[in-house]
Amino acid sequence: MGANTSALLADEIEDISRDCNLTPAEVRRLYKRFQQLDRNRSGNLQAEELRMIPELAMNPLMPRIIALCDNANFSQFVRTIAVFGPNSTKQAKTDFAFRVYDVDGDGFISAADLTQVLHMMVGEDNLDEATTTRIVQKVIDDADTDGDDRISRDEFTLALDLVDIAARMTVAL
């Protein structure tokens, strides 16, 4: 196991560490981790493999995180994690958060997207429909500046401008 993987990595390791602003040691460590997670050694992370991490399976946002990592190969896996690295920019972190909210991937956070994320966070059965609508509408009203009843990427960035994203979305690698 050890020999062939290290050969594969030798070329990639430098590229990835340069692209993602990580040290080679961090990339190697993440590779080791990737191999642990990739239980069937397919080279990609499947949703079932990710769900086996109990700390992730307990996370209310688990479906979105898994959706963003589903079938990721090593390089995509590192790129996702690098967003949360200390060297990543605030813009990259904000964009990632935007992608989490943008469930249907159309480039806008609509009321439907927000409802889905809200349901994930608090449990669908714990909120009635009227309250959900009120909560979601409030969020959209607060962030929507051009009045199209959805949040664009720019509006999202603006809304999070005063939030200390850099600190709150950074993990130790």
Binding site: I65, A97, V117, M121, L160, V163, I165
Partner: peptide
Amino acid sequence: MRLEDICGGLREGIDAL
């Protein structure tokens, strides 16, 4: 709800990854 409410959850999720 606030837009930044997902930050903590995301950070923890990535940490678990």
